[in-house]
């Protein structure tokens, strides 16, 4: 862009405004953009495939099913194979994980559930409290990397990666004990308010 000339303001200013309004590929795609993009969809439903690698046993646990997600409210995670089950995560509790234990009192488990919800929702402000967050890529193919800030959290999680385009498509969580959780979300489509549950 050319330097503004005091002698010819009438032309320079509208040009500058115009330039700012254009979506420039040269401008980085940042976390705010991504949050805005993800936030456009209030509710989603889709399929998932999950693979949990257990380093200790050098083996993997695979599962699949479908899910519905309502932004800021809850995720319903319906396992279809190898076992059938229905899990509900809300910001307050992961109450259905385990009815027999006093679930509402287990702060640790609530935190994992809350983390899962924030990852799905791209709630970077909240995540930034505990993680260094880096983003690269563009609007159609982005990748976000989260690294724990505190030593205490690093003892449990070494890093988290998110990838996607219009929606979040891959979530990879590296645990400190070398276990890896990989979740692939596919066949996703927005859900209207009426049939969202």
């Amino acid at each position: 862009m050319r330097e503004r000339s005091p002698r010819r303001p009438s032309l320079a200013r509208p040009m500058a405004v115009l330039l700012l309004l254009l979506p420039l590929p040269a401008l980085a795609f940042d976390l705010n953009d991504l949050q805005a993009q993800l936030g456009q969809t209030k509710a989603i439903e889709g399929q998932f495939e999950q693979q949990r690698y257990l380093a200790d046993l050098d083996t993997s646990l695979d599962s699949r099913g479908h899910f519905t997600y309502r932004r800021g409210e809850r995720v319903v995670w319906v396992l279809e194979a190898p076992v059938k089950d229905r899990l509900v995560f809300t910001p307050d509790s992961a109450s259905v994980i385990d009815e027999s234990a006093n679930a509402s009192n287990d702060r640790r488990r609530d935190q994992v559930a809350a983390l899962f919800l924030r990852l799905l929702g791209g709630d970077w402000q909240a995540l930034a409290e505990r993680f260094e967050i880096a983003i690269d890529g563009d609007v159609d193919d982005w990748r976000v990397t989260l690294t724990p800030k505190s030593a205490a959290l690093r003892e449990r999680i070494t890093g988290i990666e998110l990838q996607g385009g219009r929606y979040l498509e891959f979530l990879t969580l590296h645990a400190a004990n070398d276990d890896v959780l990989e979740v692939r979300l596919f066949d996703q489509h927005p859900l209207s308010d009426s049939n969202a549950d």
Partner: peptide, 8 residues
């Protein structure tokens, strides 16, 4: 089992 297959 549930804890094995839950993402959380």
């Amino acid at each position: 089992l549930r804890s094995l297959f839950s993402p959380a």
